[in-house]
């Protein structure tokens, strides 16, 4: 088991390194000159050189990368070009907001998706299965922001039940109904895709597992529906868990449009601003943190797998 953990860890390090290199090289992949955002168009050659030196852009690229990585490891992601604030602090504020939104959306999506997936899996091939699968495909294919706008139109504008913008008064970890009410619409919007994806995976897992010989074996020894379901759940849990883990990662990074629609001050909104303002350090930092979060999440999922599946545990 310990060897398994070490192996997963050893596997993750090169991935993390490659991801960081990719994030860094964004500056050079993005069209245009990163300096044009900060400098007036008529800046003199001297000013340009000066600013370049300030940002360390006059060094060879690999050296720049090593310096950037070294600082990043110490929690220093540089300063935002647009407002001069520390990128790490900006991300720190935003990531709490995004995490809360993503966790809620993932839980909602997982619960809904798993429930519908189980029903559809048991009813495999029936009209109910086809209906639920259609709903799931709709959930995956409907554009996020469009769903968000519709929900706002109905619940905020027409019914005036829920707030449409921002994250409410106080910090991200204040617990009150008022505060929570700000979370509802963006979380529901964001949960559509994971709900659809989880539903489709769980449906396939349930239908396949129900066909497997060990289920016949359980029935043949006289076990009732509840016991068969318990065995089924234990068998599909590892895979379902992995699917949700990946979805949580996507939610952290993929909520740019939804956070923008709801003006939710998370990493998505931060990214949006960074792109709009060509704020390279902010962009690099945010993407790096999100990518690392994704890698970490996969690692956690991998580490949790053996708790559910004895075949991984003992091999």
């Amino acid at each position: 088991m310990f060897a398994y953990f070490l192996k997963r860890l050893a596997f993750v390090l090169p991935i993390a390194l490659a991801v960081s290199a990719l994030c860094f090289s964004l500056v050079y992949l993005a069209p245009g000159d990163p300096l044009s955002a900060v400098l007036p168009s008529d800046a003199s050659q001297e000013t340009i050189e000066q600013v370049k030196a300030d940002y360390g852009l006059d060094r060879p690229i690999p050296v720049q990368y090593v310096i950037w990585l070294g600082k990043a490891l110490q929690g220093d992601l540089g300063k935002s070009i647009s407002n001069g604030r520390a990128v790490a602090a900006e991300i720190g504020n935003a990531i709490g907001n995004s995490l809360m939104l993503a966790v809620l959306a993932a839980s909602l999506g997982f619960t809904l998706g798993a429930l519908l997936g189980i029903v559809a899996g048991y009813a495999h091939g029936s009209w109910l299965d086809r209906l639920l699968s259609t709903v799931a495909i709709a959930g995956v294919s409907v554009p996020h922001y469009w769903l968000g706008i519709v929900l706002v139109a109905v619940f905020s504008v027409k019914l005036n039940m829920l707030p449409a913008m921002g994250n409410g008064p106080g910090g991200p970890w204040v617990w009150s109904w008022e505060h929570f009410s700000y979370l509802i619409l963006p979380a529901v919007t964001l949960s559509a895709i994971p709900a659809g994806i989880v539903m489709r995976s769980v449906r396939a897992l349930v239908a396949d597992t129900l066909k497997s010989e060990f289920v016949t074996g359980l029935v043949a020894k006289g076990m009732g529906h509840a016991t068969v379901f318990r065995h089924l759940a234990r068998n599909i849990a590892p895979t379902a868990l992995a699917v949700v883990g990946v979805q949580l990662g996507y939610l952290m990074a993929g909520s740019i449009l939804v956070e923008t629609v709801f003006a939710w001050p998370g990493t998505g909104l931060l990214l949006n601003n960074a792109i709009q303002q060509r704020d390279i350090p902010l962009l690099q930092g945010t993407i790096l943190v999100l990518a690392m979060f994704f890698v970490l999440l996969n690692l956690i999922v991998d580490m949790l797998q053996p708790l559910f599946d004895p075949r991984i545990r003992r091999s």
Partner: peptide, 26 residues
């Protein structure tokens, strides 16, 4: 009564126990 009968009165031994036993239970 069927669940009493299955396994109680009549028991089945399957062809391939690696498929007929649940892999995640002891």
């Amino acid at each position: 009564l069927l669940n009493e009968y299955r396994g109680g009165t009549t028991a089945m031994i399957f062809q391939d126990p690696s498929l007929a036993l649940d892999p995640v239970y002891t």
